[in-house]
Design a protein around this nucleic acid. Structure first.
Length: 182
DNA sequence: AAAGGGTTCAACCGCGTGAAT
DNA sequence: AATTCACGCGGTTGAACCCTT
């Protein structure tokens, strides 16, 4: 018995939101709040799934959101928190002791005797008022990652590339469970 | 001006988690 | 204890935009 879809997909609209849809969603949420995302599209008169509504609201329509590029201070904070909160895929032998406090890594899986530690973009976003996890994740992937590489730092370990390679001779890019993207 | 490649970011998908039953 | 379900998260995708040739 598989997991059921989060919503009836038949007849639902996908893709970019229109101004009219935005308006409907904002009007509904500002006056009613959201008790259950599954019901929001139905009650707001939208042909979207609840998940899509939640994403649109949290990433784009929330009135407390800041728009535009991250400031230098925000960027520094993101880099700092990124180094503290771990990486999407720091591969550590399960026989080695945890490198950091275990409560930091909420998403830990063991795959082939290797601990796979997932990033917590939401935790980082929580420290940056008005910013969303999606926004920070995108900014990291498009700007900060390049910046760190240019500075000779490994965006995964935050160590100088040479030192990082010496410390982790097994190239994580070889590991199918690791972030193998260039 | 146009083609092609690169970049950005909004939106989607699949899965983990925890509450409810 | 097992199952079901909604929510939230992180990774990925793809269309639009930008830049270079």
């Amino acid at each position: 018995m598989g997991r059921q879809p989060c919503c009836e997909k038949v007849g639902l609209k996908k893709g970019p939101w229109t101004a009219e849809e935005d308006q409907k969603l904002v009007a509904f949420l500002l006056s009613h709040g959201h008790c259950c995302w599954r019901l929001v599209p139905k009650l707001a008169g939208l042909l979207r799934c609840g998940k899509s509504c939640r994403l649109r609201w949290t990433n784009y329509l929330r009135p407390d959101l800041k728009r535009g590029l991250l400031s230098d201070d925000e960027e520094k904070l993101v880099i700092d928190l990124h180094s503290q909160l771990g990486n999407r895929c720091v591969c550590v032998s399960s026989s080695t002791p945890p490198l950091r406090s275990p409560d930091i890594f909420l998403h830990v899986r063991v795959v082939n005797s290797v601990l796979v530690l997932r990033h917590r973009w939401s935790k980082i976003a929580a420290r940056l008022p008005g910013r969303t996890d999606n926004e920070i994740k995108n900014h990291w992937n498009t700007h900060i990652r390049k910046k760190l590489k240019k500075m000779g730092l490994d965006p995964v370990t935050h160590q100088p590339v040479a030192a990082s390679r010496a410390a982790h001779p097994e190239d994580p890019q070889q590991d199918p469970h690791c972030d193998g993207k260039a």
